[in-house]
Structure formats: structure tokens, C-alpha cells
Amino acid sequence: MPKALILVADGSEEIEFVTPYDVLTRAGFDVVSVGVGLKENYAHMSRNIRIVPDYPTLLSLPHQTAHAYYDILILPGGAPGAKTFSTTNAVLELVDNFRKEGKWVAAICAGTTALVASQKKLGGEKARVTSHPSVREQVEKEGGWEYSEERVVVDEAKKVVTSRGPGTALGFALGIVELLGGKEGRVEVGNAMVLAETL
């Protein structure tokens, strides 16, 4: 059973957090969320929904070597939340550790900026990515990142999955299911959700 770790911060985008958590759980993944820099015991999301993560901080995770235990790290967008990820050393190190371990890192919307910030600070390979249009310039100005406007971009060689925004969250989540659980898993989950052929 694949294991997924999803980060959440104040100002994270609800749809981009909840959709992967929901879809991956439906697919039989072991999914865990962890808060980053929360002011309360919940994340105050971008549209005023409050979400209580499974673990309040990275330090409270039962597996301190998260990159060795989990198969994928997921970073939702939402500009304030993404800024928190991008300026928190523990998150940048976590992204770097996952990538060095050869594990998947997935980011959606402004979450891609944390991937870029980690590479800028700690090194590692750049990848083919996408993001929300509002942060495209921020991604491209770092140079070396191959930018795409596809809804979901998978760089299999670099183990990076990125997506554009709230409207692409379902395709993003299903793409992760297919990568780690196979095409049959994606079809099974999609059928159970009465998924339309075109997202």
C-alpha cells in the first residue's frame, strides 16, 4: 500500500489539499497530513474552512525520517500556504530528502514554488513542471525549469508531479494514483466516483 504525506499550512487551498487526500484514500493509500507553521491546532484555509491535520507539526510525525517511510510528498497550493512552505527550512529539507531518496514529490498551483525554493537552496535536479499562472514567472526566473501549461505534468525521470490549480486537483490526484497504484487503480477509483471522461 503506497504511503502519502500531505503538508498543510494556514492559507493552503482547500480543494488542492482535500482532493488528493480523499482520492488517494479511496485508492487504498495510507495518507497522512501534517501541519506547517500553524497558529492554532487547525489550518485556516484560503476560503475560511478549517482543517485539523493528522499531526500538528513535522516534529510530531511518528516517522522522523519521513522520506524513508512515505512514497510521495504532496504540497498543495494557496499563495499564503505555499509561501510558508517555501520559507520553512524543514519543508525545504523534506523536499530535498524525498528527491535524494528517489521518492516522488507532487506540487499543485503555487505549491510548485516550494519545490523551486528547495532546489535553489539545497541543490538537486530541476524538472519539467507547471504551476498556477500567477507564479509562472517566479518559477521561470530561477532558470532551468522546463515549464509546461499542461494541466498535470509528470516528470518520471525526476520523480516530480505538478499541476495548475483547483480546477486540476482531481486530475492531479488521479495521476498520483496511476503512478503509484497503476492504471487499473485509477480506473477503479474513477468508476466508483462516477468520473466523467473529460476532467
Rank of each mutant, 00 (worst) to 15 (best):
residue 94 L to H: 07
residue 97 N to R: 10
residue 144 G to W: 00
residue 88 T to D: 06
residue 120 K to E: 14
residue 130 T to S: 09
residue 114 A to N: 08
residue 61 L to E: 10
residue 96 D to N: 07
residue 155 D to H: 04
residue 131 S to R: 03
residue 91 V to T: 08
residue 112 T to E: 05
residue 171 G to Y: 12
residue 135 V to D: 06
residue 93 E to W: 10
residue 125 E to T: 08
residue 69 Y to G: 07
residue 175 G to L: 06
residue 146 E to C: 00
residue 121 K to F: 09
residue 118 S to A: 09
residue 144 G to F: 00
residue 114 A to K: 07
residue 81 G to C: 14
residue 118 S to M: 05
residue 116 V to G: 03
residue 149 E to I: 08
residue 68 A to D: 15
residue 94 L to F: 10
residue 117 A to P: 08
residue 67 H to W: 15
residue 162 T to P: 04
residue 94 L to T: 10
residue 150 E to Y: 12
residue 157 A to W: 08
residue 112 T to K: 01
residue 124 G to L: 02
residue 143 G to Y: 00
residue 92 L to H: 10
residue 131 S to M: 05
residue 112 T to G: 02
residue 159 K to Y: 01
residue 95 V to W: 03
residue 125 E to W: 01
residue 99 R to T: 03
residue 121 K to P: 12
residue 98 F to T: 03
residue 111 G to T: 08
residue 144 G to I: 00
residue 99 R to W: 01
residue 138 Q to K: 13
residue 133 P to R: 12
residue 150 E to T: 14
residue 135 V to Q: 04
residue 170 L to E: 13
residue 166 P to K: 13
residue 61 L to N: 11
residue 70 Y to A: 07
residue 145 W to I: 00
residue 60 S to W: 09
residue 93 E to L: 11
residue 155 D to Y: 04
residue 80 P to V: 04
residue 154 V to E: 04
residue 77 G to L: 09
residue 85 F to D: 08
residue 123 G to A: 03
residue 117 A to C: 05
residue 119 Q to M: 09
residue 106 A to D: 04
residue 131 S to K: 02
residue 66 A to T: 11
residue 165 G to N: 09
residue 112 T to F: 03
residue 84 T to E: 13
residue 104 W to E: 07
residue 85 F to N: 04
residue 174 L to N: 15
residue 109 C to F: 12
residue 116 V to D: 06
residue 72 I to F: 05
residue 65 T to E: 15
residue 115 L to D: 02
residue 162 T to N: 03
residue 170 L to T: 15
residue 67 H to C: 12
residue 114 A to Q: 08
residue 150 E to M: 14
residue 153 V to Q: 02
residue 159 K to E: 02
residue 87 T to E: 13
residue 161 V to K: 04
residue 100 K to D: 07
residue 88 T to I: 05
residue 68 A to K: 15
residue 82 A to N: 13
residue 83 K to D: 15
residue 158 K to I: 01
residue 76 P to Q: 11
residue 67 H to T: 10
residue 104 W to H: 07
residue 86 S to H: 02
residue 113 T to K: 07
residue 124 G to M: 04
residue 138 Q to T: 06
residue 113 T to Q: 12
residue 96 D to Q: 07
residue 168 T to H: 14
residue 79 A to F: 14
residue 128 R to G: 00
residue 93 E to Y: 10
residue 140 E to A: 01
residue 155 D to M: 03
residue 109 C to W: 11
residue 72 I to N: 11
residue 80 P to S: 11
